[in-house]
């Protein structure tokens, strides 16, 4: 299952490392990453992932990433890709 991770928050060292660590531990494959720092220090990242080989339940993955976000002080969302496709592709 393809999905999209978005991370928004104050920039700091190691955000991508922390996120990809959780993904690696749960056999989620990263397909593409787009990342930028907006303004002074607003970290913004979108990550396209494939969760079809993950043995972890999708809702569990969502919770794991949410918890990580709380721990490192950024907002992390994992959403199925369909929602973005529906809204932006005709």
């Amino acid at each position: 299952m393809r999905a999209i991770i978005t991370v928004v928050g104050k920039d700091k060292v190691g955000i991508i490392y922390q996120v990809t660590k959780v993904l690696a531990e749960n056999q989620v494959n990263v397909l593409d990453i787009s990342q930028t720092v907006m303004g002074e220090d607003m970290f913004t990242m979108a990550m396209w992932v494939d969760a079809s080989k993950s043995s972890t339940d999708f809702q569990e993955l969502i919770s794991l990433l949410e918890e990580l976000g709380k721990k490192i002080g950024v907002s992390i969302r994992l959403q199925r890709e369909e929602i973005f496709d529906a809204m932006h592709k005709i």
Binding site: T44, A46, H88
Partner: peptide, 9 residues
């Protein structure tokens, strides 16, 4: 989908 669209959603 582009980054901009994703962030819009």
């Amino acid at each position: 989908i582009g980054m901009q669209e994703i962030m819009e959603t």
